[in-house]
């Protein structure tokens, strides 16, 4: 299928409304972070204006924002790594090995993701209290890996089963161990799946509110709790909230830009087979 200019144009036209719909709220949040509250509500709406940085200054000076940013980053990266390692192993296990009741166990993995978090949070809290893990990175990390893991496992099963068996068998004949096959052959082929799993594991931790609220307090508090605090008893502080949201968005964008080069057909089957 060769792309023709006509098809390219049509695609572009079809995308415009989607992009507008997707990006307008983000544009509005970004500009709100540089506006006074009165300007945010100005009529006619202000598209061009003289930016102010007061909102950023206030967020950065009134509360220990940088400390919370660090907490969020450490916990989110930990969650990503933890759920990728465990998820890859288990996903490969499910994709390549059958045992009695494996279907049921797989469904049970998904069931752990179906329980409303509001219900799990109190037992979690009591558990972490017993273990002395309240308000620690570990407490949140453990919770978030367990949130991210079911999706990682299920997603990776889907990518691993598509890896042709003959490639793996050939590698094993060449003396590779099972683990070696997984690392050297399977993971590169299924890279897009791992990227998606990584992005969502990161986001689960990065945006999670309820557990962060209940399980943390001072030391391990993460950004979503801080940002929710800007929705005060006297209404939301639109400017400060937006400024915080923009700062919180940036690490995600960087991460995605880094990861997205693995999200392409560079490492397809053809390349490996050839």
């Amino acid at each position: 299928m060769k792309p023709t200019p006509l098809r390219a144009t049509l695609t572009g036209v079809a995308l415009l409304p989607v992009l507008a719909w997707t990006l307008f709220p983000i544009y509005w949040i970004t500009t709100a972070s540089f506006k006074t509250e009165l300007a945010l509500y100005a009529k006619p709406p202000q598209w061009l204006f003289t930016p102010i940085v007061d909102n950023y200054t206030r967020v950065l000076t009134n509360i220990p924002f940088v400390q919370y940013l660090k907490n969020s980053l450490v916990i989110a990266l930990g969650t990503t790594i933890g759920s990728l390692v465990l998820g890859t192993l288990a996903g490969y296990g499910f994709a390549r090995f059958r045992f009695r009741g494996s279907e049921a166990v797989r469904f049970l993995v998904l069931v752990t993701r179906m329980a409303p978090r509001m219900v799990l949070v109190v037992p979690y809290y009591l558990m972490m209290q017993r273990l002395g893990l309240l308000d620690t990175y570990t407490g949140l990390l453990v919770a978030y890996v367990s949130f991210a893991l079911p999706f990682s496992i299920w997603l990776l099963i889907g990518f691993f089963v598509d890896v042709p068996l003959d490639v793996e068998e050939a590698a094993m004949i060449d003396g590779c161990s099972r683990l070696g096959v997984l690392v050297r052959i399977v993971i590169p082929i299924a890279a897009p799946g791992l990227v998606v799993a990584a992005i969502f594991a990161f986001l689960v931790s990065w945006n999670e509110f309820l557990f962060a609220l209940i399980l943390s307090g001072v030391e391990a508090k993460t950004l979503p709790v801080v940002i929710a605090g800007l929705n005060t008893d006297a209404g939301p502080l639109y400017g400060e909230m937006s400024a915080a949201a923009v700062m919180v968005m940036l690490p995600n964008i960087v991460m995605t830009l880094v990861l997205q080069r693995y999200l392409v057909k560079g490492l397809t089957l053809g390349a490996v087979k050839g």
């Binding site: 929710a228 929705n231 005060t232």
Partner: peptide
């Protein structure tokens, strides 16, 4: 040591903490 919670969740947090021998 200040543990600040959002308006909508402060009661819940205090309730849970106080009733479970919190800190």
């Amino acid at each position: 040591v200040v543990d600040a919670s959002p308006f909508g969740d402060l009661y819940k947090k205090q309730l849970l903490s106080l009733s479970t021998g919190g800190r």
